[in-house]
Write a protein that binds this DNA or RNA. Sequence first.
DNA 1: ATAAACCCTAAACTATGGTTTATGGCAAAT
DNA 2: ATTTGCCATAAACCATAGTTTAGGGTTTAT
Lengths: 148, 148
Amino acid sequence: MEQTYSIKEVAEYFNLSISTIRYYDKRGLLPFVSKNDAGYRIFTSSDMALIKTICCLKDTSMPIRDIKLYIDYCMEGTKSIDKRKDLLLKHKRQVILEQQTLENNLKEINMKIDRYSSGNAENIIDTQIKYMQREKKNLHLADPFHIN
Amino acid sequence: MEQTYSIKEVAEYFNLSISTIRYYDKRGLLPFVSKNDAGYRIFTSSDMALIKTICCLKDTSMPIRDIKLYIDYCMEGTKSIDKRKDLLLKHKRQVILEQQTLENNLKEINMKIDRYSSGNAENIIDTQIKYMQREKKNLHLADPFHIN
DNA sequence: ATAAACCCTAAACTATGGTTTATGGCAAAT
DNA sequence: ATTTGCCATAAACCATAGTTTAGGGTTTAT
């Protein structure tokens, strides 16, 4: 009637390794997962939903101790709703900052790619190198280039 | 005439620690930085431009060994332009993937925040908990909630 | 009934990206 | 000339997030 999943199935579903799931359990991220009489972990579909949330937080770089905090709140029932919301709002701000970092740096990377793709890439690069060499020479510093 | 910077000034400018800069040097990321007679690192404005690039790659999660590869290409002059471009194009694809991951997971996080913010958050959460408890009970598994 | 596939824990090990400590030289202001 | 601040290296140490290994049960298909 109710579907269950083995650790291997969960690992494949979420593209995690079996040892990562055991590691998460050891770190307290899976207090909701039960075991059968043989000591095997039995995952329910509700467990899968919570693990999906764990992956979501992990994939946005939330540290494991904070994910554990969130999961612990979840196990407290409705009384922790405000705390869960605060935690996620704080995390959301981090994710947005990370998005902005990524976007700004991607612009830089694109500019470099464009420069390398342009017809006079060689001239641009050569001019940069000569500028650096002159600067170093004026300061009586070594020439760092491995050219010739 | 030509401006130079001490390690402390570079650290403050890029918001890195002094030991991180020394660590980067040890890992081969700063082959272009010269030293004065006393053995002190002397940073030129060209050096600053290259360090900015290092930070850009680092802040988009490029591993140090790949940053070193890129810098090594830069020290080879114009003959490595194609290799640099390939490396950056490959990295760009990674950054875009990371952006998509972030965006999708941020949507999930926002959905949760909305749920926690809604007027009937308590009912929603309570229903989820009851579903999970019934599921576990039907499978003769322990109730994981720390309620009452 | 036995081999193959699967599960368990505990503990050691790894990779990555640093930071800290110990020891000592150099530079600038008093 | 000496204290204070800055610089250097080498080596040890740390945190995070896992992975691997050793030793041992369980389950399933033949």
